[in-house]
Design a binder for these strands. Structure first.
Lengths: 223, 223
DNA sequence: CGTCCTCTTGAGGATAGTCAATTCCAGTGG
DNA sequence: CCACTGGAATTGACTATCCTCAAGAGGACG
């Protein structure tokens, strides 16, 4: 993916990288920093759909609607590289295995979105926040080498509130409860998981296990 | 898609067509009736992720996780045809345009899921119910020929409640409010949109417009 | 004619929102 | 070096939305 991406571009925290309401001609590969796709409601509230980490490809759902409903926001200073849409077309014809992998990744994000939807519908805010922390650690720990409990987490309390669908006032309260219960610590944008088991129990979810698909096409041989 | 699907199978309303927690070997093409992917929370509550109508391919997100978190439930009597997963592999190598179309469809479902997520996080139950009705009509009207305001809707109030994440008790109340406001009528499983404009206003959403993508690969020529 | 599912209605309570005031802190410019 | 500034975090009082529990009515079907 990196071989077909454009030159790196830097953005500051809070900047809208890709705005909604337009037909898109390109995707963005997130190289460094945290981003998120955001939706603004008709009454001006913001909601963050998901957290994107380095390696994620941003802007895929915008391909399917005439005017995309989500924007992409930088949650920290970020570096992105643009991927033009023609490369996607060529990937489907020339690199079926890559295309299938991309398809698989987007299905995984959809599965995550299903979990978030269920939580939003049926779980209270404390459970949702615990789940957010659990899933964040699961995604970050592998890339940080050994299993670590410390995460450099650039999210503000407002960001977390927008992620789990509550107000920042209420987030502050339940975050204090998780801290008081000895489950997590959060200072200076450093998130520490103090009690992983307890946090899983509070979240009421199972650890995330990606599939090991046997159905992908083989790599196309050069000839 | 129909050419590679297995023989039709019938299921009665309420039956779980595809259960969660297993690695999947096949997909299901919904031929007739309404279905839905359902998630059960750890405390036994049900949540319905989305409504599936005839033509939809069920079970895609289950490809991406080792144990799929959703089941597929029949919301009415349904007819489905099985699609084995090898056909998906072959599609990616032999039919890039079809594969890209499938990719596009799944992105559209993801965009819909983003909207639902935002609503769940930020809108109250009345708004969510109005949106459900709006989106249902948008999907059903085209296939029913001319723009009709009458929809044969097999959903029970419990189903609708599970779709928008409230209890059936509360759903009953807000449904009565929408009826009292003259926006919809619902009797004998027939949903009638009495005031489309008013319903759109109550929902606070724009009409859904699918993309007209220019980036799909061409049909592979026979040679 | 009973049984089960669905729908309906009411009372009281929990979760989360709104409004408002205050503190903390990092960055900026004098 | 320090005051200024704006965002971020914190806390309290009051309110609204939605849930729980409960009881009953209507209807389909054996």
């Amino acid at each position: 993916m990196r071989s077909i991406a454009g030159p790196p571009k830097r953005y500051r925290r809070g900047v809208i990288i890709r705005s909604d309401g337009r037909q898109v001609q390109s995707l963005d590969l997130l190289v460094e920093g945290w981003a998120s796709s955001a939706v603004w409601t008709s009454d001006g509230q913001r909601h963050l759909i998901s957290v994107n980490l380095p390696g994620d490809l941003l802007g895929l759902p915008a391909l399917a609607t005439a005017d995309s409903l989500d924007s992409v926001v930088a949650l920290s200073p970020v570096v992105i590289r643009e991927v033009r849409i023609e490369h996607l077309t060529r990937m489907f014809t020339d690199q079926p295995r890559l295309a299938a992998l991309l398809f698989l990744i987007s299905q995984e994000e959809r599965a995550q979105s299903m979990e978030r939807l269920t939580l939003m519908a049926r779980a209270n805010a404390k459970t949702r926040l615990a789940t957010l922390f659990v899933r964040l650690q699961e995604r970050i720990a592998p890339s940080a080498g050994s299993a670590t409990n410390c995460i450099a987490c650039p999210l503000t309390q407002q960001d977390m509130a927008d992620l789990i669908g509550i107000t920042s006032v209420h987030l502050n309260t339940i975050l204090a409860e998780l801290k008081a219960a000895g489950l997590v610590a959060l200072d200076q944008r450093i998130l520490t998981i103090l009690d992983g088991q307890g946090l899983l129990a509070a979240a009421g979810v199972s650890p995330w296990r990606p599939a090991t698909p046997g159905w992908l096409p083989e790599i196309k041989q050069l000839h």
